[in-house]
Structures are given as structure tokens and as C-alpha cells.
């Protein structure tokens, strides 16, 4: 993992703020879709997957029933040029039929929109969802595609030179969102979210 180059400037969200943001997103998903029926949460590897599970748990705490949770890896759907082929970091699993489901894609950082575009293509290879929505913990701007998030934990104005680092206890040692610089990093967040 390329961590060494990251120099944090400010903490954007701490553990409690991340928890509240997830709770709010869970409520917004329920409100918009009139309950959890037919909702399928699909996390983008790596950190979208634990976020999707947290949102599902928050929905279950309110409704008593948890929506299905899947995961998607976009390695084979990327449109950007890289120096080496990217090997998927986790499995693509869709536990229930995508046809007529409302798929909520979950990612940590929304930046250029290219990851979300790739994830939509991947989901559409599994069937024809009734709708696809997008939930992100941080929206840092600089979109390169006509994509916007339906559910946003935190809007974070940033410059392209900056890096947003999301850490989650399931993957990292702690929960935090930080903004900073990492000279050797070209993508939107550490761990190459685009």
C-alpha cells in the first residue's frame, strides 16, 4: 500500500463524524426509496465495501431488516491508462438479482467520477437494475464525467494537488478522513480511487 508519501494537513472527519454521516446516509436511502425493500448496496473495493456494510447495519438498526450487500471490483472496467494491469483487490459478488433492484453504489471518495462510471458498467453486466444511485463518504469535486452522488457524507472542496485519505477500521487501524499532500500520488485518494 502506498502510504509513505502522504503528509496530512487537516482531519476532515473523525470517528464520530464518520458514524453520524453513515447514519444520515442510511436514513436518506430509506427516505428516498420508501424503505429497504428492493435496495441492494454494492461497495467498491477496497473501502466502499466496509462502508456498504456499515450503511446496511445502520438501516437494519432502524428498520429491523438489512438490505443485501454486494461488492464490485472495477479493475477490468477502468478506462484510464496505467503502467501495469491492475489486479482486482477483492471479489465481485452480487448476492441477489440485479434485475429490478435499486442498486446503491458505495465508495469512499468521489473525485473524477471514473470509478463510478466503471462500477455502473460492471453492475449492468449483471442485469438491468430499476435504478442505480451513488453514496460516497466524501465528495471532493473535480468531476470529469456527468456524474453526481445521491448521498454524500461530506462535501470537501479540494485542489487537484491535494490527496484525500480515508481510513476505516475494517481495513486500516482507525476511522478518519484527512486531506493532505502526497507528491508521488496522481489519483484522487490514497489507494487510487479515481
Amino acid at each position: 500500500m502506498r502510504r509513505s508519501g502522504f503528509a496530512p494537513k487537516a482531519r476532515v472527519l473523525d470517528e464520530d463524524e464518520i458514524r453520524r454521516a453513515i447514519t444520515r446516509i442510511a436514513h436518506e436511502i430509506l427516505e428516498r426509496n420508501k424503505g429497504p425493500d428492493g435496495v441492494l448496496l454494492v461497495g467498491l473495493h477496497t473501502r466502499g465495501v466496509p462502508l456498504a456494510h456499515r450503511i446496511a447495519a445502520a438501516i437494519a438498526a432502524v428498520e429491523g431488516v438489512a438490505p443485501a450487500v454486494g461488492s464490485v471490483d472495477i479493475a477490468f472496467y477502468r478506462d484510464d491508462v496505467q503502467s501495469a494491469p491492475r489486479v482486482p483487490t477483492g471479489p465481485t459478488e452480487v448476492p441477489v438479482a440485479v434485475d429490478d433492484a435499486t442498486v446503491v453504489l458505495v465508495d469512499d471518495v468521489l473525485y473524477t467520477g471514473r470509478s463510478a462510471r466503471a462500477a455502473m458498467d460492471a453492475i449492468c453486466d449483471f442485469g438491468r437494475p430499476r435504478a442505480i444511485q451513488l453514496a460516497v463518504l466524501v465528495d471532493r469535486g473535480h468531476r470529469e464525467l456527468p456524474i453526481r452522488a445521491d448521498y454524500v457524507g461530506k462535501n470537501l472542496p479540494s485542489s487537484r494537488d491535494e490527496t484525500v485519505r480515508v481510513r476505516l477500521g475494517e481495513v486500516d487501524e482507525t476511522d478518519a478522513v484527512e486531506i493532505g499532500t502526497s507528491p508521488d500520488q496522481v489519483s484522487g485518494s490514497v489507494e487510487a480511487a479515481t
Binding site: D73, A75, F76, Y77, R78, P85, V87, P88, P91, T92, D121, A122, D125, F126, G127
Partner: peptide, 23 residues
């Protein structure tokens, strides 16, 4: 080992309704 890891992913791809990726 890299080939084996990718092979598992591509076997999954082959079992999908649309067994094809745009890579």
C-alpha cells in the same frame, strides 16, 4: 501467483449473465 489470482476473477466473469469485461 498473479496469474492464479486473475484466473479466479476471470472464472467468475465467465459465470456471469454477460461473461465479458471491457478490459
Amino acid at each position: 501467483e498473479t496469474v492464479l489470482a486473475l484466473t479466479r476473477e476471470f472464472r467468475d466473469v465467465s459465470s456471469r449473465p454477460i461473461p465479458k469485461v471491457p478490459a
